[in-house]
């Protein structure tokens, strides 16, 4: 009798387990696609500077330093959300931030920085988005943490939040600085 009761409960147990599995799956954000580039060498690029058309910047110049690559554009609304945090970060002078001006018009990018402030050590122009594709960019803004050896260690998809900055990005930067 008792064994039979337990067996009758089995479908319920299976159902509860399935609900738990689906619940866990649904509570994850499908927009956040884990990047296969984490732990791999950051794709190299040589691009024109936003503020000086004739000059170029090569990503190898950052070798030996911990740095952030922030993908932004003047047409990107969510970039305005994270912008004050980037400005704070730049004033604190903790880590150099390179801006990748993604699929933007040069004049509009320059005007946007003039209006909102320029948190970037330099910004480079990725007009046709090819460097963005190499870095697996699919939603602006995105922010990458690159270590001294030029390996991507972290990727923030969407605007940098204070929580992400203080709990993840800055501790990681400090740890990588020590290495």
């Amino acid at each position: 009798m008792k064994a039979l009761r337990l067996r009758l409960l089995l479908p319920l147990a299976v159902f509860v387990a399935l609900v738990a599995l689906l619940w866990a799956g649904l509570s994850r954000d499908p927009r956040e696609v884990p990047s296969p580039l984490i732990g791999k060498a950051a794709p190299a690029f040589t691009l024109a500077l936003l503020h000086a058309d004739g000059k170029t910047f090569d990503s190898s110049e950052m070798k030996g330093r911990v740095w952030l690559l922030n993908v932004w554009a003047s047409w990107c609304v969510a970039c305005r959300i994270e912008h004050p945090l980037l400005m704070e970060l730049s004033r604190a002078n903790v880590v150099p931030v390179i801006g990748l001006n993604y699929k933007d018009k040069r004049a509009e990018g320059i005007a946007w920085l003039a209006e909102h402030g320029d948190p970037y050590q330099i910004s480079v122009v990725d007009a046709d988005g090819r460097v963005g594709i190499d870095w697996g960019v699919y939603g602006v803004p995105e922010t990458f943490v690159v270590d001294k050896a030029g390996v991507i260690r972290f990727k923030q998809i969407g605007p940098v939040t204070r929580e992400a900055l203080e709990r993840t990005i800055l501790p990681l930067v400090r740890e990588l600085e020590k290495a």
């Binding site: 696609v33 884990p34 990047s35 296969p36 580039l37 594709i133 190499d134 870095w135 697996g136």
Partner: peptide, 8 residues
């Protein structure tokens, strides 16, 4: 594409 964006 997989190298850049993953199996997704």
């Amino acid at each position: 594409l997989v190298a850049r964006y993953g199996d997704f």
